[in-house]
C-alpha cells in the first residue's frame, strides 16, 4: 500500500518502473543477445559513464545548447520583427510557411557540402529545425496581443524599451518555451542521425559504433545515456516554464 502511494505520487518513478518491467518482458521474449537485461545495461552504463560516455554526451549536449542559444537569438528577434512590422511580414512570411514544414534532415547533405563534416553542419541542422518553430510562434504571440494592451501600455507612458520589457517579451516568453518543447525532441533525433557522419565524439556516434561492433550491452548503455539527456532537457524546459510563466500555469 505504501509503495502504491509513493508510486502514484511520483510519476517519473512510476513511468521508469513500468518501462523496466516491459524491458524485462522483451528481453525474455526476444532473446538475451539482442536485448540485454536492464540490470546488465545499467551496470554497463555506470561503468562506461566516466569514460567514455560522459564525453560523448557532453559533445552532443554542447551541440544542442549552442544550437538552442543561436536559434533563440536569431529566431526571437526575427519573430518579433515579423510580428510588429507588417511590411517585413508580407515579404518574409510566404517563404517561412513553405520552409516551416519541410523536413530539415533533408538539408544535411547540403550543409555537409557547404560547411564540412564537423560541428558547423550539425549545429546548423538543429538550428534549421528550431528556428522556424520559434519564428512562427513568436510572430503569432505578438499578433495575439490586443490593441487595448498596447494602448494601456502607451497610456502608462512606456517608451520603446519598456514596451518590450513589460509587454512584448513577457507575452511571447511562454510561446518560446512551447516552441522549444515541440522541437527539442526532433532536434535530438536529427542530431543522432547527423553524428553518424564523420564524428568521433557524440552520443549518436557512440551508439552506432557499438552497434557495428555488435556490442549490444554497451549500445544499450548509450541509449540509456541518450534517454537521460533528452529527459533532462525536457525537465529543464518544464522548470523554466514553471519559473517564468506562473501566470499561464494558473489558468
Amino acid at each position: 500500500m505504501l509503495i502504491n502511494k509513493i508510486l502514484l505520487r511520483n510519476k517519473t518513478l512510476y513511468g521508469a518502473l513500468m518501462i523496466i518491467i516491459l524491458w524485462y518482458t522483451m528481453h525474455f521474449a526476444i532473446g538475451s543477445a539482442i536485448i540485454p537485461t536492464p540490470h546488465d545495461t545499467f551496470l554497463t552504463f555506470v561503468r562506461l559513464l566516466p569514460q567514455p560516455l560522459l564525453l560523448h554526451l557532453a559533445a552532443s549536449l554542447g551541440r544542442i545548447l549552442a544550437a538552442v542559444a543561436l536559434s533563440l537569438a536569431i529566431g526571437v528577434s526575427m519573430g518579433l520583427w515579423l510580428g510588429i512590422n507588417q511590411r517585413a511580414d508580407k515579404f518574409f512570411s510566404p517563404m517561412l510557411y513553405i520552409l516551416y514544414p519541410l523536413p530539415k534532415i533533408a538539408l544535411l547533405p547540403i550543409f555537409m557540402i557547404l560547411f564540412g563534416l564537423g560541428n558547423t553542419s550539425k549545429i546548423l541542422l538543429i538550428i534549421a529545425i528550431l528556428i522556424f518553430q520559434i519564428i512562427v510562434t513568436v510572430r503569432g504571440g505578438v499578433r495575439e496581443l490586443t490593441e487595448e494592451l498596447f494602448l494601456s501600455a502607451r497610456s502608462l507612458g512606456m517608451n520603446r524599451v519598456q514596451l518590450y520589457r513589460h509587454l512584448i517579451l513577457p507575452a511571447v516568453l511562454p510561446k518560446i518555451i512551447t516552441a522549444l518543447r515541440i522541437s527539442i525532441g526532433t532536434s535530438i533525433a536529427v542530431l543522432f542521425f547527423s553524428e553518424n557522419y564523420a564524428a568521433t565524439y557524440g552520443i549518436g556516434y557512440f551508439i552506432m559504433n557499438r552497434w557495428s561492433m555488435v556490442n549490444y550491452t554497451e549500445m544499450f548503455g548509450g541509449i540509456v545515456g541518450l534517454s537521460i539527456l533528452g529527459f533532462g532537457l525536457f525537465k529543464l524546459i518544464d522548470f523554466a516554464e514553471g519559473e517564468l510563466c506562473i501566470w499561464i500555469k494558473i489558468k
Binding site: T146, E148, L149, L151, S152, S155, H166, P170, A171
Partner: peptide, 19 residues
C-alpha cells in the same frame, strides 16, 4: 500626445496578464 498626469482606464481594463 500622451500626457504624464493623465490616467486612463480602458474598456477591458488593460491589465498585464503576466503581472
Amino acid at each position: 500626445g500622451i500626457r504624464k498626469d493623465t490616467g486612463i482606464i480602458l474598456q477591458d481594463y488593460g491589465l498585464m496578464p503576466w503581472k
